[in-house]
Structures are given as C-alpha cells and as structure tokens.
C-alpha cells in the first residue's frame, strides 16, 4: 500500500469540508478522485500533503503515519504535490524552478535530473532560462510537474491536472501520466474531466459533499451509470 487515508475529517473555518474520507492508493497505480467542484477533492489532497490540517483521521504513506506533519516533512518522505493553479515561481527561470524542487535521490523511486525531465518535456528544455511568468499555461503545467519530480517522489498528487488546458495539451498530459506510471510512480489525481480520467486511471473514488460515494475500478465505474449521473452530473 502506497497511501492509505482512513476516516479523514477536515474543516475550513467552521465549514465541514471532509467527513470521514477513506481511500487507498496502491503501489504503481493511478487513482482518480472524481467529484464536482467543491466536493472536497482538492481538500483531500491538501490534507494528505499537510497544507490543510485534518481534524481527525489517519494518513499512512509508505508505512509511516503522516497526519499532522508539516508539508515539508511529508514531501521529504517522497510524496510529491502538484497544485491545481500551477503556482509556478514566475520570477524564477525554468532551471531555478527545478532547483527549488530538488531533493536527494531516494531508494525505491525513480531519480530525476533536469536532463531526464527535458526528455519527458522537450519544450522545457528549449527554455531553460526563461522566467516561469513568461510561459504559456500548458508549459507552466508541465513545469509544475517537472518541479515536483525533481524531489524524486514515490507518489505524486496531481490536483486537477487538465483544468483550463487546450484539448491537445490535455492529451499530452495524459501521455505524461502514463509515462510516470510506467516509471513505477504511484499517482493520485483529482479530476472533473471524465474523458481524461478514463484515459489514465486504474481506479476511481467519487467524493460528494465531503464523503466517499463510490470506490472501484474504472470498469466498474463505466458500468455504474447511477453513480456517474448522481455524483458527477454528466
């Protein structure tokens, strides 16, 4: 088991955002968290990485309990986080952005160098010294993933990777995620785009109003029309 979340509760102020979320991501698989805007997908990911402090529940990552730790300690255990709004350091060049994400090589996880990343994202290799702020949205989205990979994570959390991207770029993103999986990484992503999830995910969890409503393989989700219409409004 790569990541196991058990009975997670989180609040924003007084608003109860997550109510008893339980899910698990197995080693080497791609898990999609599905649900409407505001359902609690993003909060789940942020609670796992420590940006939101859960009020109750247990989070186990690669055998270690991580709930309540600071984000940097969690990241140093090999859990990477790619935020939804990219959050590139716009004043820093591509190379500097990667430098901020750099961590020591880690056993049991692929080791990334800028050169290896530029093979995966050839565009970035052509703009090493360009400030992040002068890149297009698609390029920024690639940089934010590359930056997280510089930490040599064992598992990556991707928050809404396809949001706001052109269809063509979304296809490239799907290809990237499949490559990461082939490298042996575990991936947990939150999504609203079912087309995209269907292309990359092995299993899916549906969250609605802070609760888990469905857990199963993508094939099971395909077969469960009720879950799709009721919780995903497709």
């Amino acid at each position: 088991m790569m990541l196991h979340v058990e009975g997670l509760h989180s609040y924003y102020g007084r608003a109860h955002i997550l109510a008893d979320v339980t899910l698990e991501a197995r080693e080497g698989e791609v898990l999609a968290l599905l649900g409407r805007n505001g359902a609690g997908k993003s909060t789940t990911l942020k609670s796992v990485i420590g940006l939101v402090r859960p009020s109750a529940g247990a989070i186990t990552f690669a055998g270690a309990r991580i709930e309540g730790l600071s984000p940097f300690r969690i990241a140093r255990l090999g859990l990477g986080f790619v935020p939804e709004d990219r959050r590139i350091f716009t004043d820093l060049s591509v190379m500097e952005n990667l430098e901020v994400g750099r961590q020591a090589p880690r056993g049991g996880a692929p080791t990334w160098t800028p050169d290896r990343l530029f093979e995966l994202f050839p565009n970035l290799g052509r703009m090493r010294d360009r400030p992040g702020g002068r890149m297009s949205g698609g390029e920024q989205q690639m940089l934010t993933i590359a930056r997280t990979l510089m930490g040599n994570p064992r598992c990556v959390l991707l928050d809404e990777p396809s949001e706001g991207l052109a269809p063509l770029i979304v296809e490239q993103m799907a290809k990237t995620i499949r490559t990461l999986k082939a490298e042996g990484l575990s991936v947990v992503l939150s999504e609203q785009n079912l087309h995209f999830s269907a292309m990359v995910a092995d299993r899916a969890v549906i969250i609605e109003k802070g609760r888990v409503r469905f857990t199963g393989t993508m094939d099971e989700l395909r077969a469960d029309e009720q879950a799709r219409t009721q919780y995903l409004s497709v």
Binding site: I49, G50, L51, S70, P71, F72, A75, R76, F81, P83, R87, F89, T90, D91, L92, E96, N97, E99, V100, G101, Q103, R147, T148, G151
Partner: peptide
C-alpha cells in the same frame, strides 16, 4: 532561489520539501 521562491509562494516551497 529558495528565498525568491518563498517570496512568491512560501506554502508551495514547503510542499516541495523545503523547511
């Protein structure tokens, strides 16, 4: 680089494993 990155988004710097 870390200082300039934190100037823009300290939370993200932490999430990337920087103390």
């Amino acid at each position: 680089a870390l200082v300039r990155a934190a100037t823009q988004d300290r939370e993200m710097v932490g999430a990337l494993g920087v103390d």
